[in-house]
Amino acid sequence: MTDLTRRQLLSFSAAALAAGAIPRRAGARPLDDVTAAGRLRVAVYRDNPPFSFHRDGTLVGVDVDLARTIAERLGVGIEYMELTAGETVADDLRNAVWKGHYLGGGVADIMMHVPYEKEFGLRNPEAVLFAPYQREHFALARNPMRMTQPMLAALPDEPVGVEIDSIPDFFLLGAFGGRLRDRVVHYMTIPLAVAALEKGEVAAVVATQSQVEAALGERVKNFPVTPVTFPGMMTSSWDIGLAVKDNSRDLAYAVGDIVAALLEDGTVAGVFGKYGVTHNAIPTE
């Protein structure tokens, strides 16, 4: 197989090939190009439940559904670009919207699930951050029989589950002089941690509220979920929005208007609800 063929297979979706279209991959395209192409290419994280993940072979999730609705409102089709998370979101912005990964595959028109914060935006001038749609925070899900109070400082002598390499992981390993270190149990995903909570392997799970609520589903009535703060570790809540390349502001304005309308008419809250997650609206300042 020649390199050219291999690159095409890497880069283009089967649908694009079937349609006989050879899409341009040079850069994120402003609004006119998206409209002319009739398709919006959206970057979502790989394996990031409940926002973007595979269920029975189909890509689903809050971000996936929201992106589809955005494309519908723009009057174009949708194509997803699944993104493997890098060391930091700055790497992800480079790979997803303004440069592309050095392995190839091109860039997307917009990226979902990008932190929306002024300081972070200033440090990433190659991208435009816009349209925050969720306020995230950390939460504790507990077995109320074993852990009577939803407070980290009052964690009893019981094992607590976290997602490996997550912020709660780092926090609990170091918190209170390392007092909890030997009781932190690591899981590859939060659904696995929640399964361990149900089986009694751990007495609590610490993760983002979206992760833990979605993983619990109906079981939330047995395992109450409470927001928690991590003392000494910056703010415990932040906002999630979208990003485009800095040359695509017109696309950002159009998509921003759509997101505002979707927030207004309750569509966003509905999508979150569909995955068992509370939608936390961002207060207007």
């Binding site: 060391e87 699930h113 997550s166 912020i167 910056m234």
Partner: peptide
């Protein structure tokens, strides 16, 4: 760093 993010979550890096 005052604040950094990984896979959409915030932390001190």
């Amino acid at each position: 760093e005052p604040i950094t993010y990984k896979k959409g979550a915030a932390y001190l890096g």
